[in-house]
């Protein structure tokens, strides 16, 4: 008895696309004239000038995995982010947590977790869908590499970027 989710129907104007394009062009044109007349300044001399220190908390940089205040990896390899990711940037290989591990009661964790940063479009859907609050878009955004493989972040790298996140929901930490 699968549940069928219907796609929303586009209205006539939405189907036409043109109104959206004209609206977008309008915004660009406005900025163009505003900067011509010196009312706004939008150009930044990157990389000499950077805006890193002004990045807001909600900035959507690279997605990364985080641990909780007790050093537990929050991700349980539910693979929802792998499912939701529009460009299929995420690959997860789940595994069972061995019984001698301190967090054996969580049962499941990623054995490997890869995000292909060539594919990632920084949409933030992975962060939104994660039921364990394990994946966040952090402030790093400039990644370079000489090979395609260099651009794939593995689990180790993801935890380095992600670091520790405190004060989140901790359903696994209460004594059981």
């Amino acid at each position: 008895m699968a549940i069928v989710v219907k796609r929303p129907k586009l209205s006539f104007w939405e189907k036409l696309y043109l109104p959206g394009i004209i609206k977008g062009l309008g915004i660009t044109l406005r900025h163009f004239f505003l900067s011509l007349t010196g009312k706004t300044k939008v150009s930044m001399q990157y990389p000499e000038e950077k805006w890193d220190s002004h990045l807001p908390e909600y900035y959507r940089g690279a997605p990364a995995l985080v641990t909780d205040e007790q050093g537990r990896e929050r991700c349980v390899a539910c693979q929802l982010c792998e499912f939701i990711c529009p460009p299929r940037a995420i690959t997860i290989h789940p595994e069972e947590i061995p019984s001698e591990d301190k967090w054996a009661k969580v049962e499941k964790r990623p054995q490997e977790f890869e995000i292909d940063m060539i594919r990632c479009i920084y949409c933030g859907l992975c962060e939104e869908v994660c039921p364990e609050q394990a994946i966040f878009l952090r402030k790093e955004y400039a990644f370079t590499g000489l090979k395609r493989e260099d651009m794939v972040h593995n689990k180790k790298r993801l935890y380095e970027i992600g670091g520790v996140r405190e004060g989140l929901v901790n359903k696994w930490n209460e004594l059981k």
């Binding site: 349980v76 539910c78 049962e107």
Partner: peptide, 16 residues
């Protein structure tokens, strides 16, 4: 609240 680690998720009658 086990759905994230539960193998049945996605074909679970309770979820549906």
């Amino acid at each position: 609240l086990d759905c994230p680690i539960c193998d049945q998720a996605g074909e679970c009658r309770l979820q549906e």
